[in-house]
């Protein structure tokens, strides 16, 4: 009961924050609100008992990405430009996608349902045998690092590629701007 109330309040605040982000034109306020959004999401993860995800979200969403977005504002402008096209088509598209997603949830088992396919197939094996096989008390770690080690290697490779990509884009831009300045001079 109390958990339902907390969930309702958190989701209401999430939706309010999302609307505020959409309606605000000052990008500084938008960045701060997106930090608030991340913190609310982190709280939702805590109520779902997903503490790992919660503090990743708090550190990345509210911490680092706020700093990076402020850095981006310093490199560009501080207010949004007026949209050049009508926003009806995007709205229809978003509503349609949302409706499809809602329709998709109808088939899904309830949250925490013990008879859900995810709970009856592999999860019991992980929960009962992982201590013997892996010798790590935290089942999340043993699944992430050992049972699905190849998957995690892929994730690290994705982080690596993303970092290299961002570095390449930013350094390329810098070189181009220096060339422009040389041309002007």
């Amino acid at each position: 009961m109390i958990e339902t109330i907390i969930n309702v309040i958190l989701f209401a605040m999430l939706v309010t924050t999302a609307f505020a982000i959409v309606r605000t034109t000052r990008l500084f306020a938008v960045v701060m609100l997106s930090g608030v959004f991340s913190l609310l999401t982190a709280m939702l993860f805590v109520t779902l008992d997903a503490v790992d995800v919660a503090f990743t979200e708090a550190a990345v969403g509210a911490g680092i990405s706020t700093v990076l977005m402020l850095g981006t504002i310093a490199l560009t402008t501080r207010s949004t430009k007026a949209p050049t096209r009508s926003s009806t088509m995007p709205l229809v598209l978003v509503v349609l996608t949302g409706a499809v997603l809602f329709y998709g949830t109808l088939d899904m088992p309830n949250f925490g349902d013990p008879n859900a396919p995810a709970q009856v197939h592999l999860a019991p094996h992980y929960l009962t045998d992982s201590i013997e096989e892996i010798d790590v008390p935290n089942v999340v770690t043993s699944i992430l690092a050992s049972y699905r080690g190849f998957d995690t290697l892929g994730e690290v490779a994705v982080v690596f590629t993303a970092g290299i990509g961002v570095l390449l884009i930013l350094s390329g831009l810098r070189r181009r701007r220096e060339e422009e300045e040389e041309d002007e001079a």
Binding site: V67, G71, L75, T77, T152, V156, L170
Partner: peptide, 24 residues
């Protein structure tokens, strides 16, 4: 290994953003 890569990527991206002369 995961920790080293994530630390490196995050700090490298921060350096890349902060190292450019701001327009504002």
């Amino acid at each position: 290994g995961v920790g080293i890569t994530v630390t490196g990527v995050m700090i490298a991206i921060y350096y890349a953003f902060a190292g450019r002369p701001p327009r504002l």
